[in-house]
Amino acid sequence: MLNPAPQSRRDFIVTTALTTAAVAAGSTTALAKPEDVAAEIKKLFGDKPITAGRIKLDLPTIAENGLVVPLNFKVESPMTDKDYVKTVHFFADGNPNPQVASFNFTPMTPRAEAQIRIRLAQTQNIVAVAEMSDGKLFTAKQEVKVTIGGCGG
């Protein structure tokens, strides 16, 4: 994977599939990797600086059932017409797809806070990126240990 020579698409797919299979040990589904999450974030925001902080994640450190993992979050913001949280994106680095959900707030939502329930295929990191109305970006990350995976595994 660190080979500097340009790879063909086919070689890349084969190598990726083999690596993922080795990592997932028996799982038939190719799972995302931390690089995929980084790539998704780059696709959305390019090379804009992202600061750690302002997002408070409330996730279990150990989830017994990966099918239903409660995800609560809160972003510090006055939520006024001039200064509010526009969107909070969530990614998971060990699911079949890195995307989890995005939440779009407005000044009519007085708290940049929401709750959902998500599926996690295995122990992995949840990464949040909050985009403020002035374009500033903040991030937070938390690992969730999963006892029973949420994708049929």
Binding site: L67, Q99, A101, N104, M108, T109, A114, I116
Partner: peptide, 22 residues
């Protein structure tokens, strides 16, 4: 529109969504 959410396949079955409004 006051709030919206884009969900991927990682959202659990019988999706639950809670949030605050004024």
């Amino acid at each position: 529109e006051i709030f919206s959410a884009d969900w991927a396949s990682a959202v659990s079955a019988n999706p639950y969504q809670a949030f605050f409004v004024k």
